[in-house]
Every structure is written in structure tokens, then in C-alpha cells.
Amino acid sequence: TFTSYQLEELEKVFQKTHYPDVYAREQLAMRTDLTEARVQVWFQNRRA
């Protein structure tokens, strides 16, 4: 599960791009204290 802060950050990036590159995902992962893999999976699920 994600915190409301994490979801907010993820959604913010999703609004800009549905396909963030690895750099964007790593920045987001650091900001949200998630792994890059978790961020990647979240985007895959969000796009589905």
C-alpha cells in the first residue's frame, strides 16, 4: 500500500506523462522512498 503523499507524487507525474523514463522513475522513487521497480509497476497498473 502507498501513503497519500506517495500517491499524490505518483499521480502528479502520471498527469505529465504515462511513460516516465528511467531517470524520472528514479527521481520519483527517491522522493517517495519507494524502489524504482515499485514505481515502474505502479505506472504499468495505472495505465492498464
Rank of each mutant, 00 (worst) to 15 (best):
Q6H: 02
A48I: 11
N45E: 13
K16R: 12
E11F: 03
Q6I: 04
T1K: 10
E8W: 08
N45I: 10
T1M: 14
T3W: 05
R46P: 01
V13W: 07
K16T: 12
L28G: 00
R46K: 09
M30S: 10
Y19L: 03
R38W: 11
T32S: 04
R31K: 10
Q27W: 10
K16H: 10
T35G: 04
H18T: 07
F43I: 01
D33V: 05
V13E: 10
A29V: 06
T35L: 06
V13A: 11
R31V: 10
Q15W: 06
V39C: 03
R47S: 04
Y23F: 13
R38Q: 15
F14D: 05
R25L: 15
E26A: 11
Q44V: 09
A24P: 15
T32E: 01
F43L: 03
R47K: 03
Q40E: 14
D33K: 12
R31W: 05
Y23W: 12
E9Q: 09
R46I: 02
E9A: 06
V22E: 11
V39K: 01
S4W: 11
M30T: 09
V41M: 14
T32N: 03
L34P: 11
T1G: 13
V22F: 14
T1A: 12
T35H: 04
Q40L: 14
Q40A: 15
T17N: 13
Q15L: 12
T32K: 00
F14C: 01
E36S: 07
N45A: 12
F14E: 00
E11K: 03
K16Q: 13
T1H: 12
R46D: 01
L10E: 02
R47W: 04
E36P: 13
A48F: 08
A24K: 04
E26C: 14
H18P: 15
Q44K: 12
K16P: 09
A24M: 14
L34G: 01
E9W: 06
S4G: 08
R31C: 06
D21K: 04
L28W: 00
T3L: 08
R38K: 12
V22D: 10
V13K: 03
W42A: 00
K12Q: 06
R47D: 02
D21V: 02
R31Y: 06
T17P: 00
Q40N: 14
A24H: 07
Q27P: 15
P20R: 01
E11M: 15
A37F: 09
F14A: 02
T1P: 12
Y5G: 06
V22K: 15
F14K: 00
Q6F: 15
H18Y: 05
Q6Y: 01
T35S: 15
A37W: 14
Q27F: 13
T32M: 09
Q27S: 08
H18Q: 14
V39Q: 01
Y19A: 04
T35Q: 04
H18R: 13
E36Q: 08
A29T: 05
Q6D: 02
R25E: 03
V22T: 11
L7E: 08
Y19C: 10
T1I: 12
A29K: 05
W42Y: 04
E8N: 09
V22M: 13
T32F: 07
Q44S: 09
F2K: 02
V22A: 14
T32R: 00
F43P: 02
A48N: 11
Q44I: 09
D33S: 11
T32P: 00
L28F: 09
V22Q: 15
